[in-house]
Amino acid sequence: MINKCVDSAKNAIKNIKSRDNILIGGFGECGAPLELIDALVDSDIKELTIISNNAGIADRGTSKLLQAKKVKKIICSYPRSLDSYVVDDLYKKELIELEVIPQGTFIERIRAAGAGLGGFYTLVGVGTMMAEGKEIKIIEGEEYIFEKPLKGNVALIKAYKADRWGNLVYKKTARNFNPVMATAADLVIAEVDEIVELGELDPEEIVTPGVFVDRVYKCKKVYDDLLQNVYVKKHQMKNK
């Protein structure tokens, strides 16, 4: 019988090693596997390379990994935000290595890794500092730059519902980087809000087929009230 469900976040992150490259899903905190990240914070793993769109907000999520000195390098597209004081500070003190990639190139490099491709040529970044050191090729009269695949040892992703085969569906804009990251790591761990019986997910609506997923962990708190409240309060302040 196939059963990918694990009973705790600690067991979910088993076998992750120091110096691993870790893909983490989420656009900001929306779609980030916050309980899996917390389990990493509580582990003795260190010197990680984090591959994620952002680099943590306030003292939550990826910021906690940074504060716990677990991270050697971050590869991302948009580390800056109003509340990104943890990464801001580490960057200014040169205590972290930071690689910034255009967001579309970032996700396409991960897609290439997951699809078994050796990379791709893109117009994005041509004539800018993103092109420095990269192979240039003229295709049908236009200048392109070559981008390599970007793979993880591990992917920590967030989905809405799963079954024991690891089939996944996502919720609204929390989908973002998660389905692509699910294809591009040796070990793929999904944190989900609900686990349903096999057959309950409509095959027409499954976004990530279970073949990509190794472990499923049902989170303790569904984006707990705290986080919903943080966003609602901010929203109501702005739209008074």
């Binding site: 597209s77 580390p79 800056r80 990104s84 990464v87 200014k92 930071l98 990639i101 967001q103």
Partner: peptide, 17 residues
């Protein structure tokens, strides 16, 4: 400037496409 964390996001992809 080094004082500001560089953040490109989707800006390059948007204008090229």
């Amino acid at each position: 400037e080094k004082s500001m964390v560089p953040s490109v996001g989707g800006a390059m992809d948007l204008v090229v496409g």
